[in-house]
């Protein structure tokens, strides 16, 4: 019996600790700002645990302690000291610590600006995806969606706003969360310290498909980043096979261009995500599906099953061959 209990306890701990790792864990920070948040969290966890332990001990003494001990506990000074002075001092100290952290964040922001021109990226919250605009990627801003690539070590200044309702931009390993409010642009500066893929999530309930409104931040070494940004500046690459070419025609005749832009083609809609380089992104539909030809075809016809209430109509009218051709074309847009 004892052994089972111990096994169960170990299992619980393992499961709980498992939550500390992963590409979306606030407890595995990879930037200065996220580390401050993580430190603050640990201080709170530690302090909270210590206070809880203290309270349990006092309760035990109150129930089982000697008469002298209970006498001490019921003294006027104990009540005033423990019930009034202690919380005031503790909470005031925490508040002071919070102020220090905020000041550090501000100092860091100005250090960023003086330390080097930050990359400017606008992210606009939409129901239920992320419009991403690289504002200084060349002569013209470059639009993308649901994936943000950043250079390691260089500060990135995010202008965050929304097209519709309140969303919240949160990449736990890189920063604390910040709301996207209609009619104003909030700014957040992040500098990733290590190359890798970080997952972000909308952290403010925004309607039907909120739970499937995620995205990836991909931190690249500066040289890789430069190569990448000069590639996405280019219009979409021409279809590489007759199948893909036919798929491109079907994309246009079926009206997909009414909502989606593929630069370099007649598709110039702006209601939905820009698809100029959709084949090179990690995920579809705000991280609802990993990018693949099969996933693209499934998404086009059955998106309402995959992500209910999303604003794209389901194109169930397309026969399987045509879906396959369109998916071939889109997957080729690297």
């Amino acid at each position: 019996m004892r052994r089972e209990a111990r096994a169960a306890l170990v299992l619980c701990v393992v499961i709980a600790v498992g939550g500390c790792a992963g590409i979306q864990s606030a407890l595995a920070p990879e930037s200065e700002g996220a580390r401050r948040v993580a430190t603050l969290s640990w201080v709170l966890f530690g302090g909270g645990s210590a206070i809880l332990a203290l309270m349990l001990a006092l309760m035990w003494l109150a129930l089982r302690g000697s008469a002298r001990m209970r006498g001490v506990l019921s003294r006027h000074a104990t009540v005033i000291g423990g019930g009034l002075v202690f919380p005031i001092v503790t909470l005031a100290a925490l508040l002071g610590y919070g102020f220090v952290l905020m000041a550090a964040a501000d100092a860091e922001k100005s250090a960023f600006v003086s330390g080097g021109e930050p990359l400017h990226v606008s992210v606009i919250g939409e129901r239920w995806w992320w419009r991403v605009v690289y504002e200084d990627a060349g002569e013209m801003p470059i639009a993308s969606a649901n994936e943000i690539r950043v250079p390691v070590g260089r500060p990135v200044r995010f202008s965050l706003t929304t097209e519709d309702v309140i969303h919240s931009f949160w990449v736990p390993r890189l920063s604390g969360k910040i709301d996207m409010i209609p009619g104003r642009a909030n700014t957040l500066t992040i500098s990733a310290e290590k190359a890798g893929v970080y997952r972000g999530q909308c952290a403010e309930y925004c309607g039907g498909a909120h739970a499937l409104m995620s995205f990836y931040v991909v931190a690249l070494e500066p040289s890789e980043f430069e190569a990448w940004i000069s590639r996405i500046r280019e219009p979409a690459q021409a279809p590489q096979s007759p199948k893909a070419e036919r798929g491109g025609e079907l994309f246009l005749t079926n009206g997909c261009g009414a909502c989606h832009t593929i630069r370099g083609t007649d598709a110039d809609g702006s209601l939905g995500p820009d698809l100029t380089h959709v084949g090179s992104r990690l995920s579809l539909a705000a991280a609802a599906l990993p990018t693949s030809k099969a996933a693209l075809a499934r998404w086009i016809a059955h998106n309402q099953t995959i992500k209910p209430e999303n604003l794209m109509p389901p194109f169930r009218n397309l026969p399987a061959e045509e879906l396959d051709l369109i998916a071939t074309y889109l997957e080729g847009l690297k």
Binding site: T253, N254, G255, G257, A258, G269, N317
Partner: peptide, 16 residues
């Protein structure tokens, strides 16, 4: 969130 009607409803678009 309305796309233009003529993107789909035009000669040469999908036969459906």
């Amino acid at each position: 969130g309305l796309p233009p009607c003529v993107s789909c409803h035009r000669p040469g678009s999908s036969r459906s």
